[in-house]
Simulated assay, not measured.
Amino acid sequence: MRIKATESTLLIIDIQERLLPAILDSDSMIEHAAWLQQIARRVSVPTLLTEQYSKGLGPTAAILREGVAAESILEKMEFSSAADGELFKRPGGDRKQFVICGCETHVCVMQTVLDLLAHGSQVFVVEEAVSSRRASDKELALQRMRQAGAQIVSREMVAFEWMERAGTELFKSISREFIR
């Protein structure tokens, strides 16, 4: 199955300021998520952000929060972003495909992915845009999500599938600005 811009939502899970110092390669994870978010905007893919207990963990990193409407930010206490069904009521939450970035891979990301799969969604986890405190937890979570039916992908896989074809003005501008 291919990732379609018209059928997918970018879901950025709990990339929050106070959590980041404990996360492996957090700067790289944020950079990859922001890169994908910028492309999502260009191809009209909605972005949803979740924040786990923002009172304690702070807001989403500023670079990711910029330009995101309040109704596209979901405050939560459950580890899974899809546990209470509120996610599906947000702009883009009714689409059948979810492209996932976030932390922690083995907790909130994985539980969200498992619930989305149980809901019947198609799920694509962007390997370089997820992280945990320990590399081993990330790797185990990626294995488990793959076994459960999620597709583990790279950011470029997502971008090229969203664009679908070369030769368009969109392709040319995204290639110039983002593909190196």
Rank of each mutant, 00 (worst) to 15 (best):
Q151A: 15
F178G: 01
T9R: 03
Q52R: 05
A148S: 08
E127G: 07
S121Q: 11
A148W: 00
E128N: 07
K4P: 00
R176E: 05
L11V: 07
I30L: 12
M1A: 07
Q16C: 02
S154W: 09
E75I: 10
L117V: 04
I100E: 00
S8W: 12
M163T: 09
V123S: 00
E104C: 02
L49A: 05
L142V: 13
Q52S: 10
C103T: 11
Q122D: 14
A83K: 15
R90E: 08
A70F: 12
A148P: 08
L24I: 11
S72Y: 06
Q16V: 01
E164A: 15
Q37A: 15
A82R: 03
L36C: 03
R42S: 15
F124G: 02
E169D: 12
E169L: 06
E177T: 06
S175D: 06
K96G: 04
K172S: 05
C101M: 04
H119N: 06
S80D: 06
R42A: 15
A62Y: 02
T60C: 13
S81N: 12
L140H: 07
L74H: 05
S154N: 04
T6V: 04
L49R: 04
S44K: 11
F171W: 07
I179C: 03
S26T: 01
K4T: 08
I3N: 05
K172E: 14
Q38V: 02
L11R: 03
E127P: 07
E78G: 00
S175F: 08
F79A: 10
W35I: 00
Q97H: 04
K138G: 05
G58S: 11
Y53P: 09
A118K: 15
D84T: 06
L11D: 02
W35K: 02
L114C: 00
D84L: 03
L117T: 08
I30E: 03
R155H: 15
G167V: 14
H119F: 15
K55P: 11
S131R: 09
R180W: 05
F98M: 13
I30K: 02
Q147R: 13
E31I: 03
P46N: 11
L140M: 12
V99A: 00
S132Q: 12
Q143S: 14
A33C: 13
S28I: 06
E31F: 06
S131K: 11
S81V: 01
A82Q: 01
A150M: 07
A159M: 12
A62W: 02
W35Y: 08
V99F: 01
T9F: 04
V109H: 01
S28Q: 14
V45K: 12
A166H: 07
R134L: 08
S81K: 02
K4M: 09
G67V: 05
R180C: 03
D14W: 10
Q143F: 14
K89E: 12
H32L: 05
R155N: 14
K172C: 03
L10I: 09
G58K: 12
M1S: 15
V123Q: 00
R42P: 02
E177Y: 07
G92A: 07
T9I: 01
L36P: 06
A22K: 13
I152N: 02
R134N: 10
